[in-house]
């Protein structure tokens, strides 16, 4: 009974976070900030929803599969967002609101090549 209510709370919080991430995708001013909004839905939101669902499943293979889904999401999401931001940077997308003494676009030429 307590576990049921705990899982309801966790899943509701996760769904709330996912909607907030969706709103953040529209409220954020530029691409690099939207990346952070997506980061919220990739880490804590998926953790809360999958963890809450694993309470419903109890100790079974379904719990292991939920954990594996979460592990795959956790391992692939930083790689995907790094390749996104890296190719946006190489393409020449400038972030807004960057200080004057920040590394300019000239620095982006790689030193070793």
């Amino acid at each position: 009974m307590i576990l049921d209510w705990l899982s309801y709370t966790l899943i509701t919080l996760g769904a709330l976070l996912s909607v907030i991430g969706g709103i953040g995708l529209h409220r954020m001013p530029d691409f690099y900030c939207r990346l952070h909004a997506v980061g919220v839905t990739d880490t804590l939101c998926s953790f809360l929803i999958l963890f809450g669902l694993s309470f419903q499943a109890g100790f079974s293979l379904a719990t292991v599969k939920l954990f594996l889904i979460f592990a795959f999401l956790l391992f692939t999401s930083p790689t995907a967002s790094f390749s996104l931001s890296h190719s946006a940077w190489k393409w020449g997308l400038t972030p807004i609101g960057v200080r004057e003494d920040a590394p300019s676009m000239k620095i982006k030429v790689r030193e070793e090549s």
């Binding site: 690099y32 990346l35 980061g39 804590l44 790689t79 931001s85 890296h86 790689r110």
Partner: peptide, 24 residues
């Protein structure tokens, strides 16, 4: 990877000795 995994900071370029990070 840890920097990118943390929401609010994302690495966008790797240099030989440092990493360029965009924070919110």
């Amino acid at each position: 990877n840890s920097v990118t995994l943390t929401p609010g900071s994302a690495s966008i370029e790797i240099y030989p000795d440092s990493v360029l990070v965009h924070t919110i």
